[in-house]
Design a protein around this nucleic acid. Structure first.
Lengths: 250, 250
DNA sequence: AAATATCGTTCGCTCTGTGTGAACAGATGT
DNA sequence: ACATCTGTTCACACAGAGCGAACGATATTT
């Protein structure tokens, strides 16, 4: 099925398709999974059973869910990707601007919110840690997009651009037209394009060769915003992004 | 190889063995993995390639590491397992006792540190979120162990009990002898048995049927400790564990 | 109550694709 | 220059992944 290079393990693809489906459906039974993946019930049964036996799926009330063990397997990754000194920079940024600060990392075609700092413990979060974010509909995503090599950037525009809110830009040309400005200013903006009423500013984090490793962003709800602060926030953001660049390249 | 029930996907077992080995070795190449898992290089090559193509392994400087994508896949799990109201209870506990408070959950034979709260942002952590902890060498682990059904508890003692510090109890009978007291007091203690110079107290979290879902714990370095606080901490801990029990059973 | 639908589980069967071991070129170190 | 790593590719053989049908057990419907 699909294209088989002969140097691929198809069963592994199937098992991860199961895990991804369980995540997407937020818990599911055998039949539901088989239907969703368009596979035989018997076959999916074996995968689910194996994954459960390995401790990566747990059954409760007849539905299988992702286990804490799966999370635990990957839990060291963000700690290693974001050293303490980088966390501190984000912490300080959140404190200075008084809004939520987020560190987003780019990896194989997507950005992932890796570290989030709220200025107070009561502040609400725009997204969860570990959440995968669209490149075209967030400030951080666009900051990364603007600095990607042509080939990699174009790959993003080949698929459909998902809609998240009324303000989401779904036309490739519209998005592309904003990228030149972002490159010049090292600053991207998002006005409720991913979550309604949440405004973001973000600056890219580039490595030595100019390749975008991610972005730092500041988010606030529209009500909180005074346009007067905007310039201050922007300059704090850009300097934070440069500090992170230095911290990451040692 | 191994025992095959016929209703198991062996390729999936192999792929996860690869992921676990990568985690354990903290980055590895094909040959090293093949050697470590005692498998053919050609076969491991296919698994690694598939996992990398799926975006769950990333290559850097010739070594494969777990990706942010793998973490992202499981990142929703702890949020779902620990509702906000439970987080608050742990937050308050940390604030009242002035030490690090930890929520540990039990799942398929192991405990996992799911939520950690430091009283101040400078306090050092005894372990990382997502870390899998031994049942016999931590206060939280012993709190769980004491309330496990006989069969499940005995399974723990069948394997070797790993040593972590000079103080780790590795004799099954010694550990077992402490469990009765823990059951009576609803309180377990660990004195540098997992990390040197770190002292912990923990109370179990039980569901309606008395089955241990996890434990709450308080950790402090030995220097910080005054024995006078101990009784106060213990009672705060026990009442926190009861609040969490209520919060989890709705 | 009877009938229907849907669940998880099991069983053969067929052919695919997993796993092995050997051979390859390219680095790296001696 | 040699020896020893590495990742990659190949052909082969047997295991086992995936399918579809049938099972009893629960729910849901009539």
């Amino acid at each position: 099925m699909a294209r088989s290079d002969g140097k691929e393990i198809k069963a592994t693809r199937t098992s991860f398709a199961v895990l991804e489906a369980v995540a997407e459906l937020d818990g599911a039974g055998i039949s539901e999974l088989a239907r969703h993946l368009d596979r035989s019930k018997g076959g999916i049964y074996k995968h689910v059973h194996t994954l459960a036996d390995l401790g990566y799926l747990v059954e409760r009330d007849g539905a299988y869910r992702l286990s804490l063990g799966l999370w635990s397997l990957g839990a060291t990754v963000p700690k290693r990707a974001v050293p303490d000194r980088v966390e501190s920079i984000v912490d300080n940024l959140a404190a200075s601007v008084g809004h939520v600060a987020t560190l987003v990392l780019y990896e194989s075609g997507r950005t992932i919110a890796t570290y989030i700092r709220r200025p107070t413990s009561t502040a609400s979060q725009p997204f969860r840690e570990g959440e995968s974010l669209p490149l075209h509909a967030t400030a951080s995503g666009k900051a990364v997009l603007a600095f990607l090599p042509d080939e990699e950037r174009n790959a993003v525009f080949e698929g459909e651009l998902d809609t998240y809110t009324d303000a989401t830009l779904t036309d490739p040309e519209t998005v592309k037209s904003t990228l030149e400005t972002i490159r010049q200013q090292r600053l991207a903006r998002d006005d409720g394009e991913y979550r309604t009423d949440i405004e973001c500013l973000a600056a890219p984090i580039l490595d030595d060769s100019g390749y975008p490793r991610g972005a730092v962003g500041v988010s606030r709800s529209r009500e909180e915003s005074g346009d007067d602060e905007l310039d201050t926030d922007a300059s704090l953001l850009v300097s934070a992004s440069k500090s992170i660049e230095n911290a990451l390249t040692e």
